[in-house]
Nucleic acid binder design. Structure first.
Lengths: 254, 254
DNA sequence: CGTGTTTGTTATTTGGCGTAACACTTCTAA
DNA sequence: TTAGAAGTGTTACGCCAAATAACAAACACG
């Protein structure tokens, strides 16, 4: 049985010795694969290399993952979750009544994660790995939504607290608002909450695009010609600007 | 001889019949590879597939490219050049005294190119293809700078024409300006022109990051859940905002 | 027309993915 | 305690693509 679902019946009993060993092996495989990705700077890795590093032979890995795609799917889900955690952690260290500061925290940790994990960043937010076919409607999309929800939550809280000015973004004749409410109502709302105003949603996308642009340019080395200090300063400056444009109050100085 | 350099001596005589045939074959190989990339949506392609589509056998391709990396390098250089042309064309259809409009034209064509050519976009602005090792200081960096220069030129012209307000970006204590002038003087200036003020350079990076963020999110399908009209409207709105923040005048209505 | 170059071929090596068949360990139940 | 089932590993193998070697045909040019 390779299928990791259905751990018995519906009940979750204490994991047996074997189950623990299996989980540990799965974890070691994933960690080894990540190590290879980091080492060679690509999303490519060889089953045989993973096995060799673990002191096993390649075919043994197929006891744990049906094929390369299944391992990749697992890595993608993990990566989304970790990116989500990476931005949620620093965000939640800033008080809720400082949404500007919370946004800057999210932006900075998004960028840091991208820079520290370019391979995994490319895995989830770049072009799919050659030959990889994502499972339809699968766990990857859910994981992506969970990660995205961390940013949404920030704006939602700010709106709830009444700390969100109307954004500065032009919406000639309310076209965007109409389109968003017509076609994508359910996507616009964060999980478990009333809808964000369309204009705020638009502002959030603007912020995300800008953060993501910096993060991906930097992750792939396209800003290497700039000294790190300058990159830091420029990034922070840009983030303050987009936060302001989105209607967030200026971050409170720490 | 596979080495494409040294076409005789320094002189460029009329290309002989054989040279023309060779150039045509090289071109066909590249076009076939691009077709495969577009078709399968990845940066991966098989030499054997290219050869089959061309009615040849795989080893014949090695007469034209020493290995997969050499073909990739050629494709990367081409892609940079075409991206540069793709943004320069629409830009130059807008009058020089409308730099805001010229920026929007650049942004829109950058985005369109990314959406239409996600594979090539990933090739140049994403994570390197598995196993690919770029030649050091090679033709790829030069091509990248040529493409980037198209955006620089826009800001340079606007500054020359005195149509550039100081950007709205905060630079506390002029840290960014100092860093830029200290460390990256030559990179800040466009080719063949006096230096752009550091604050304008910063604004340009802000614009680029935002354009690139939208473009890459969309190219890899992360905005597919939004209807195209909404994406268009939101993108345009964001571009107007960043252009304004960068000190460009509002685009003149066509 | 003969010689050397270019461009193609087929045959072969190398290396990774994935499967098959088999061996050893561990858990479970009579 | 012990037989059998389930789980985990192994070696041997088939397949496919990259890249090289050795060879054959077409072409350019004296």
């Amino acid at each position: 049985m390779v299928d990791p679902t259905e751990p018995g019946d519906g009940q979750d009993r204490a994991p047996s010795r074997r189950e623990r060993a299996r989980a540990a092996t799965i974890d070691e495989i994933k960690r080894t694969a990540l190590g290879l990705m980091r080492e060679q700077g690509t999303t490519d890795f060889r089953f045989s290399d993973i096995a060799r590093l673990m002191g096993m032979t390649a075919p043994a890995l197929y006891r744990y993952f049906a094929d390369r795609d299944e391992l990749l799917t697992a890595l993608i889900v993990d990566a989304y979750d970790e990116l989500g955690n990476a931005v949620a952690g620093p965000r939640d260290e800033i008080p809720v009544d400082d949404p500007g500061g919370r946004f800057v925290a999210v932006a900075e940790s998004y960028r840091r994660w991208a820079r520290e994990e370019p391979g995994r960043f490319a895995l989830i937010l770049g072009l799919p790995v050659p030959g990889y076919h994502a499972p339809e409607e699968g766990p990857t999309t859910e994981a992506a939504q969970r990660a995205m929800a961390q940013l949404k939550a920030l704006f939602y809280e700010a709106a709830q607290a009444g700390m969100l000015r109307p954004p500065r973004l032009p919406d000639d004749g309310g076209v965007i608002g109409r389109l968003l409410t017509e076609h994508a109502e359910e996507k616009v709302s964060p999980i478990d909450g009333p809808p964000i105003p369309a204009e705020t949603f638009q502002a959030m996308l603007h912020c995300w695009a800008c953060v993501h642009g910096f993060a991906s340019l930097e992750a792939y080395g396209h800003l290497d010609w700039l000294p790190m200090e300058a990159r830091d300063a420029i990034f922070t400056s840009s983030m303050r600007l987009v936060a302001d444009a989105a209607g967030l109050p200026a971050p409170r100085p720490a």
